[in-house]
Amino acid sequence: MPDPDAETAGAVEWALGVYVEQRLADAESVDPLFARDVAEKVRDFALRGGKRLRGRFVWWGWRAGGGAKAGPGVQSVLRLGAALELIQTCALIHDDVIDGSSLRRGAPSLHVAFAEDHARFGLRGDRADYGCSAAILAGDLALAWADDLVANLKIDSASWPRIHDLWCSMRDEMVAGQYLDMRAQADASSSPERALHIAHLKAALYTVERPLALGAALAGADESLASALRSARRCAGVAFQLRDDLLGVFGDPSVTGKPSGEDIRTGKLTYLTAVARTLSEDAGDTGFQRTMRQALGDPDLSDAGLDELRHVLEDTGARRATEAEIDSLVARSQEQLLQAFLPQPVHDRLSALLSAAARTPLTDKAFS
């Protein structure tokens, strides 16, 4: 196992690999066809790519809460990180079905892979329906594996109620954020405030805030430390989602691992596009407004049309405003982190992780 302090992502990956291999063996004992068609895909997806951001936050929440890098709880905190990677697997599989995304982590999305199986095996029925249905089941399996892993952690009985409450809250928030995201697409919302609320639920809480809280709770952190960390992680989490919005429009698909402009073609409400709408309306620029109306939610938007919208997002100042908001959120996060009065080495690593999560370069791989 890698040293978790020096190679946190590698240590979480190790714990994840050990666990999913165990669960694959369990699936084979249930039914070999199910194991081959579904469980293997879940295992492979979980282990394919990603920077283990949530697992890293769990580890450094644990260290911030006083957990020792070589203490008896190390295996539990790494397995908790692995559980978060599995709930992320569930979220991404289902998200790709909802959005109709064809690419994830540089490979076909799971519903596409299942549809390819349908064609390869000469199965009856509609290929796309089969792919989506099978992917939903695969996401459910990933969630079940995550829940089982948390339920069987070796945790101090005094810490368990807090861990359980945080885990349950995170699952509810994740589903709520996904639903509100979908609902905002359907009702064509353009409110920056609503975009930030969705970003808080869909990303800030389950990507940064809850993982850090889970790690700190596992270490038995007191309420004053938990409160200081809460403010820092909330700001960084929202900044993470705003950066992800920028990556979705301006990032290079060859390095982000997902198609560029997908949020635009599905008409997803993001802070970036909401601000662009507000700024173009305030300026009375009907040309910009028309371009946005035509592009947002157009599944057949051409690359040229996407480029035109990118220019609008630049020319209205929406991209600059979003980047300024990210910088402000990161600065506030760092200020709040100082209030936790952590040991310097732990503070430095956690500070760097919070900043890196929110300031991923547009040419770097997405954290998802």
Rank of each mutant, 00 (worst) to 15 (best):
F57K: 14
A274T: 02
T363D: 12
I93C: 02
V346G: 01
Y271R: 02
G215R: 14
R162Q: 11
P2L: 03
A357S: 13
E7R: 02
A232M: 07
A68W: 01
C168K: 08
S355Y: 12
Q88D: 14
V346M: 05
L242N: 08
P72F: 02
A199F: 00
A203M: 04
R23L: 13
F240W: 09
A83K: 06
D156C: 03
E223I: 02
A228K: 02
A91K: 06
D156Q: 10
S355C: 14
L242S: 02
G267C: 13
W145Q: 15
V38K: 06
V150H: 15
P32K: 06
L86M: 15
D303C: 08
L78W: 10
G125Q: 07
A340Y: 00
K51D: 04
V312F: 01
A144I: 11
L103A: 01
A91H: 05
G251V: 13
G65L: 03
W14Y: 10
V77K: 08
F34K: 10
V74C: 12
A239V: 06
E13M: 03
A135N: 04
T256V: 03
S231Y: 03
R120P: 00
E323G: 10
A295P: 01
L143D: 06
Q339D: 04
P4Y: 05
S157F: 07
P343K: 07
W160R: 15
L218K: 11
R52P: 03
D117M: 09
T8L: 01
D181M: 03
K69L: 05
L80Y: 12
V74R: 09
G251Q: 03
A176R: 15
L196P: 04
E314R: 14
L92E: 05
H347Q: 13
T273W: 06
S254M: 08
E314A: 11
A228Q: 09
A295D: 09
D148V: 03
T322Q: 10
R359A: 12
F250N: 13
L296S: 02
Q178L: 11
A283D: 05
V20F: 00
A366P: 00
R243C: 04
D95Y: 09
G297S: 11
Q339S: 11
P211F: 03
R183E: 13
I198F: 06
A68H: 11
L16C: 13
